[in-house]
Each structure stands twice: as C-alpha cells, then as structure tokens.
C-alpha cells in the first residue's frame, strides 16, 4: 500500500483524440445554445477528459465559428485549462498571502520536494499533478490545499504526506479501471 503501486488507469496519452471526439461533440451540443458558451464547453470537456485535447480546439472552432487561434487564446489565458493530460488527482497548494502568513511557503517547498515535481508537472505514474492556486477562500484556516472537490485547512507537512499517501493508495478490492 504505497505510492509505488502501478497506476490502475490507462495512460491518457495513448488515448487518441478521435476517441474523445464523441464526448467533445456532446459537450458542444449541450452548451452551444447558451449565450457565451465557450467557457461552459471547455469546463465540461476538461471535467470529462481531464484536459483540453487538440481535437477539441478544432471542433469548437468549427462549431462556434471561431478561429483556432481564438479558441486557443481562451484556453491558454485561463490557468485552469490544461492542453495536456494531467494526473488522476490535481493537488493544489495555496500560494496566497493568508497562507504565507502561516507557513504556506514552507508547505509549497515541502510539496514540491515530497512529490519531486514543480508546478504543473505530473508524477511519472500519472497519479498526481501539482498546481499552485491563489486563494481557496479558506483563509481563516490557512494554509490550505485542494484535491478535487475536497479542501483541507491548517495543513502542515505531515498532513500533506498523509494526504499523498491516501491519494496514491489504491484499495485492492475497489480497483477501478476508468
């Protein structure tokens, strides 16, 4: 039960863009009637596929009558959107002032060392992507860390290690092949 367990999910890098196409199409279908549909479409695609594949940029530009450059410009503007596959878990460490006031800088450093990753890098086993975040609104319980929908407060180095241990421990009976 350690972080050296093989990754249970197939590598996303091998998934061909074409395989994503039907998903991309349906997310466009679901949102294109909305005024200003681009961000909702991108969110849905990233939530589903984990990132914004190149095929999505082409498809969106065709369907919304935008240039590829315009769509790419939007995707690259926002820190949230990624154009390459990311880990199964996105671990976000708050880098803003309130967390700095309670040891946030040490925690950032520790997180990078513990995972051997810099910001926006993904562990080799595809488990974890480390990202900075500027404020989770948890400033009364600094320092804060987010994983998916879960937000953690008063996180020290040990808590962080425990979290990583939990995230990289795959329950044998519940092994899922997503």
């Amino acid at each position: 039960m350690s972080s050296s367990l093989p990754n249970a999910t197939p590598s996303k890098a091998v998934a061909v863009d074409a395989a994503h196409l039907s998903a991309i199409t349906s997310h466009i279908d679901n949102n294109e009637q909305k005024p200003g549909p681009l961000l909702p479409i991108l969110h849905d695609i990233q939530n589903d596929i984990g990132y914004i594949p190149d095929a999505a940029i082409s498809e969106i530009s065709k369907r919304l009558n935008l240039s590829r450059a315009e769509v790419h410009g939007v995707v690259s503007f926002y820190h949230h959107f990624s154009t390459k596959p990311r880990g199964r878990h996105i671990v976000e460490v708050c880098c803003a002032e309130s967390c700095q006031a309670l040891g946030g800088r040490d925690l950032q450093k520790h997180a990078k060392e513990k995972l051997g990753l810099d910001w926006y890098q993904t562990s080799k086993d595809g488990e974890i992507t480390l990202e900075p975040v500027y404020c989770l609104g948890n400033c009364a319980c600094s320092p804060a860390v987010r994983v998916g929908k879960q937000i953690l407060g008063r996180v020290d180095n040990e808590d962080f290690d425990e979290l990583i241990e939990e995230l990289t421990t795959v329950p044998v009976t519940l092994m899922e092949g997503r």
Binding site: Y78, H79, H80, F81
Partner: peptide, 19 residues
Amino acid sequence: GAKAYICGEETALLESLEG
C-alpha cells in the same frame, strides 16, 4: 470562472462571461 484573478475586475469578468 477558470482561475484568473483579473476576472474579478468587472469588464474582464464580462469578457470572460462572453467566452
């Protein structure tokens, strides 16, 4: 939003809402 501090500025926010 999609993680952009500037979108708290009202005109940038409107641009973002427009996609």
